[in-house]
Simulated scan of single mutants.
Amino acid sequence: MKEKRFKILYSQGTVDVQRILVDTETGVHYLQTSWGYAGGLTPLLDRDGKLVVRFANEEE
């Protein structure tokens, strides 16, 4: 069976939810938010404005 493309690295909240997802193929991290029937997804950036790219199995 093929592994899922996105993994949840962090999640908080139950109604207003924030999650950090990682794309297992590219290593790019995303911030996902949802509240009620609305939500959004954006790439996660570091303090220099560069994409956060780290695979889920890499050390912090």
Rank of each mutant, 00 (worst) to 15 (best):
D48Q: 10
G39L: 00
L44G: 05
Y37F: 07
D46N: 05
D48F: 13
K50R: 12
T33Y: 07
L44Q: 09
E25T: 03
Q32W: 08
T42F: 06
I20D: 05
K50Y: 15
P43K: 04
D48H: 14
V22G: 04
T26G: 09
D23N: 04
V22C: 02
D46G: 10
T26R: 05
G27N: 02
V28I: 10
T33C: 03
T24D: 12
T24A: 07
D23Q: 08
G49Q: 11
I20S: 02
A38S: 15
Q32I: 14
K50W: 08
K50P: 10
I20F: 02
Y30I: 06
G49R: 14
G36H: 00
D48I: 10
W35V: 06
I20Q: 12
Q32D: 06
S34H: 04
T24S: 11
D48N: 11
L45N: 11
L45A: 05
L45F: 15
G39Q: 13
L45T: 11
T26Y: 00
G36S: 13
Y37V: 10
L44V: 02
K50D: 11
Y30L: 06
G39H: 04
T33A: 01
L31Q: 04
T42R: 09
G36W: 03
L45P: 08
H29L: 02
S34C: 07
W35P: 00
D48P: 08
I20H: 15
R47L: 15
I20T: 14
D46W: 11
W35Q: 07
K50M: 15
G39S: 07
T33S: 01
G49C: 13
G49H: 06
E25M: 00
L44H: 08
D46T: 06
G36I: 04
S34L: 01
G49D: 15
L31H: 00
G40S: 01
W35T: 02
T24F: 08
H29A: 05
Y37R: 13
E25H: 01
L21M: 00
L44P: 07
W35L: 05
V28M: 03
L21D: 06
K50T: 12
G39P: 03
D23P: 11
L21N: 09
D23S: 07
H29Q: 10
T42D: 01
L41K: 06
T24W: 03
V28Y: 02
L31Y: 02
L21E: 05
L31E: 05
G49F: 13
Q32Y: 09
V22A: 13
L44K: 13
W35A: 12
G36D: 04
E25A: 00
H29I: 00
G36K: 01
T26E: 03
T26Q: 14
D23C: 02
K50Q: 13
L44F: 08
L31S: 06
L45W: 11
Y37S: 09
L21P: 10
